[in-house]
């Protein structure tokens, strides 16, 4: 084929520019480590990256929600433990009060101890989280839920909370309750203590060893059970947090697979592009060196 001189130079120039562009492309990939920096780099991968990023963001949120719920429940569990302790101590006092060896003066002193235990029970039942919100108030987290009140029919304590269950999403489609509603347990325990206090003051030894002890045992057992439930819930949230972390890591890896440049590939390609660039530069010099002008007589 006949070659036009300007075309020859134009195409050499174009080859150099193309080679430069490729070197630049792989250099950018090397330095940023990113292969898909805009959707058109790989539309299919871009779709995956967006979907995965969205899923990862949600997993991270699940992880943080589950961890926070678990921490809150651990506080609730500790309060429930305190309440169980209170009932154990009350049981000891009641047994002592039911003992024939204890005189009435002694029973009055024991009644005062029960009174102190009642206050501790209420204090634990009105436990707050780190931001000052009540742990056992349902949705009414800013209202002190348990208030001793002898005007309530059949009870000596009033519940000012509600039955609101806090449901949180701890995984895809995993809805878990993150608060504990213990108004019944606390009321029973408080009433049992009230019963003990009154019988101690009245010197009703047989009542103490019969009805009262039963009430205290029942209330203590219920609190212990509830504490056990808290443990199960904590475990569920811990599992959910671990699962969310695993998912998030997996998503991170998949995003990286789709988005990041393969280092070995990139280095090889960069090397190849540089070689081609050198060759195109050399071609220009060689082509420029050959012309009939050099052989014409001056």
């Amino acid at each position: 084929m006949r070659i036009s001189t300007s075309q020859q130079f134009a195409s050499l120039k174009q080859q150099i520019m193309d080679a430069q562009e490729r070197v630049d492309l792989y250099q950018t990939r090397m330095s940023t480590g990113i292969r898909v920096s805009k959707p058109s780099d790989d539309p299919f991968a871009a779709l995956g990256i967006l979907t995965l990023s969205s899923a990862k963001s949600k997993s991270d949120q699940h992880q943080s929600t589950a961890t926070a719920a678990s921490n809150n429940l651990k506080m609730a569990e500790a309060r429930l433990g305190e309440m169980t302790d209170v009932m154990q101590q009350a049981k000891t006092i009641v047994i002592q009060g039911a003992n024939g060896a204890t005189d009435q003066q002694g029973r009055i002193a024991l009644a005062a101890q029960i009174d102190a235990l009642q206050q501790r029970l209420v204090q634990s039942a009105n436990g707050q989280d780190g931001s000052g919100h009540y742990l056992f108030a349902g949705y009414k987290v800013t209202t002190k839920p348990f208030v001793p009140d002898s005007s309530v029919v059949n009870n000596y304590i009033r519940y000012d909370g509600d039955q609101g269950k806090q449901i949180v999403e701890a995984g895809p489609g995993t809805l878990l309750q993150s608060n504990m509603l213990i108004d019944q347990q606390v009321t029973d325990a408080y009433n049992a203590l009230e019963d003990a206090k009154q019988r101690l003051q009245a010197g009703d030894a047989s009542g103490l060893s019969g009805v009262t002890l039963q009430k205290i045992d029942d209330a203590a057992a219920n609190l212990l059970n509830t504490r056990g439930e808290a443990g199960v819930m904590i475990q569920q949230f811990d599992d959910a947090a671990a699962a969310a972390t695993r998912r998030s890591d997996e998503f991170t890896k998949q995003i990286s697979d789709k988005q990041d440049a393969d280092l070995i590939d990139t280095v090889t390609n960069l090397q190849r592009a540089q070689t081609a660039y050198q060759a195109s530069l050399a071609a220009l010099t060689v082509a420029n060196g050959l012309t009939l002008l050099d052989y014409l007589k001056p």
Binding site: S40, D41, L47, L50
Partner: peptide, 20 residues
Amino acid sequence: VMDYYANTISQLGQESAYYQ
């Protein structure tokens, strides 16, 4: 909304790559 948006971006990428 998330799927719709991801789809928009994928479509944009495909269209852009097609013309490139």
